[in-house]
Design a protein around this nucleic acid. Structure first.
Lengths: 156, 156
DNA sequence: TTATTATTAGTCAAAAATAGTCAAACTAAT
DNA sequence: ATTAGTTTGACTATTTTTGACTAATAATAA
């Protein structure tokens, strides 16, 4: 069943850059429970496989799958994400950003944006919490740099 | 329905600086309850998205939506820093970043970096703390942009 | 001028309409 | 037999829609 739904979605994505579905409709179409759709998406449309997923709940809700291009620097970024782990000092975080800039993975403006966001003074004041939140932020930002969206995609 | 009404109002605002409506008329036009109009305005025409709303009750009452005019980039950044204040929700923070992107003050990559950094899931889990830290981060990042040379983007 | 009524818009919370999570049960592959 | 992958459904979270009630202003009557 997962394979069938995956194939269906990929067929659509072969024609278009993105596909937008209503979860319950697809579930009905393939006669399965709605959460099956989440399973398909979580296992087959991951960022590693080159897909980005957005969704909205409530009236007019949807799930949108977008094909993205995984960039060359992805491997290096993954390595850095691992190095960051779940806690990082301000000093080390700034070094990571500096390295990205030195390696020309990010622009100067991007580097400065990221560096100011690593500053201790912005956080809670609790060292353990702060290092953890900082790591979360930095990892998320790096993860975001791994891919590029098609530029004709519908704005949200 | 919300999306349809939003699109309608934005279309009018594309031609003019402001739009003035009679709540009951628009509700009738789209066949919805009047308070739906308030919902659209409260969620789609916020100050974070660059709109001001004025209204009057009673005979001849109206709702007026005004596009906020800012002079230049630095002015816009200062305005947004004020709007952020010392606490901001994820949703509103993302609106602010989106607005800066729409106005071409930041690039798409910069916008994405900032938007992922606003995500609730990265913080402590305590709402009050998180909104405060998020505001600190966003204000710092915007303040930083004031002193940078404008980015030289090609085509995003 | 003051009080009353009519005409608007605003607020808030309940209900409805979505999607997400998680773990137990099931199935297939080794 | 064991393990990994899949299916299912109960429960949760988010967003929109709806309507009863409230508040403000204008128009009218006293």
């Amino acid at each position: 069943m997962t394979d069938i739904i995956e194939a269906y979605l990929k067929k659509v994505l072969n024609q278009k850059e993105q596909v937008e579905i209503r979860r319950s409709e697809i579930a009905e179409l393939f006669d399965c429970v709605p959460s099956q759709i989440n399973y398909v998406i979580n296992t087959r449309f991951t960022i590693q496989k080159g897909y980005l997923v957005e969704s909205k709940r409530g009236g007019g809700g949807y799930i949108r799958i977008i094909k993205v291009q995984v960039l060359d620097e992805s491997d290096m970024l993954n390595t850095m994400i691992e190095v960051i782990g779940n806690s990082i000092f301000e000093r080390d975080a700034k070094s990571v950003v500096q390295k990205l800039y030195d390696d020309k993975i990010i622009s100067k403006r991007e580097a400065k944006l990221m560096i100011v966001a690593m500053d201790k003074s912005l956080y809670t004041g609790d060292r353990v919490t702060d290092n953890r939140v900082r790591a979360n932020l930095l990892r998320s930002m790096l993860a975001n740099l791994r891919y590029e969206e098609p530029n004709n995609r519908k704005a949200d």
